[in-house]
């Protein structure tokens, strides 16, 4: 069994953010920092205390980001980056969402992308009536080798079939178009 001393998530401390849609307030006022974790033990304590993704109301988001990076395009560590986007069908909320989101979190805290893990900024979950979304955000959309490595590992870890195609979109493109129209810069 694992030992008793805490297992550090070196080099990263991770911050969990929660967004609850309240149209009477500005977007940033709806974004709340929940907690920061820097050990495996703290991560599970946090995970055990928050609602499962599938239990959140529509319009809510979770985001897990490296400490010091805010979960928004405007952050200097995000603005040149982009995201690997997983769009789920409505019925997958009950069958798949919790597993896929947990797997995403484990990819992040486990630094699963080898040396390219430093390119990862965080991950975002959007719970939406029209279909939930999960995305892994990376720092530099022009880093083709890093982005593709992360995409391939991520797709494999999610257990997606080879027939399923996932796309990477630069935030700069997403910001100027509606999500469904932003073009894929890379696919795996």
């Amino acid at each position: 069994p694992p030992g008793h001393s805490p297992h550090s998530l070196t080099p990263s401390r991770w911050a969990l953010w929660f967004f609850k849609n309240d149209r009477s307030r500005a977007w940033q006022d709806n974004l709340h920092l929940v907690t920061k974790v820097d050990t495996v033990e703290d991560f599970w304590a946090m995970y055990g205390h928050i609602q499962l993704a599938s239990k959140l109301s529509s319009g809510c988001d979770y985001a897990l980001f490296k400490d010091g990076i805010e979960p928004m395009w405007e952050d200097s560590k995000n603005k040149r980056g982009g995201r690997w986007l997983i769009s789920l069908a409505k019925q997958q909320r009950h069958s798949e969402l919790d597993r896929l989101w947990l797997e995403t979190l484990l990819c992040l805290i486990g630094e699963s992308f080898a040396e390219h893990s430093r390119e990862v900024c965080g991950a975002v979950l959007n719970v939406r009536t029209k279909g939930d979304k999960i995305a892994v955000w990376t720092r530099e959309a022009e880093n083709q080798a890093g982005v593709l490595h992360i995409g391939r590992i991520y797709k494999e870890r999610l257990g997606l079939s080879t027939k399923t195609i996932i796309g990477y979109q630069a935030h700069a493109d997403t910001a100027t178009k509606s999500n469904s129209l932003a073009k894929n810069k890379f696919v795996v």
Binding site: P1, P2, H4, H7, S8, L9, T10, P11, V40, E41, F43, W44, A45, Y47, E103, L106, I109, G110, E111, S112, A114, S117, R157
Partner: peptide
Amino acid sequence: GKKQYDREFLLDFQFMPACI
């Protein structure tokens, strides 16, 4: 240093009681 944890290792901790 950099630490990489595989998913099975991380999952082993999920239901461990917090021990002080």
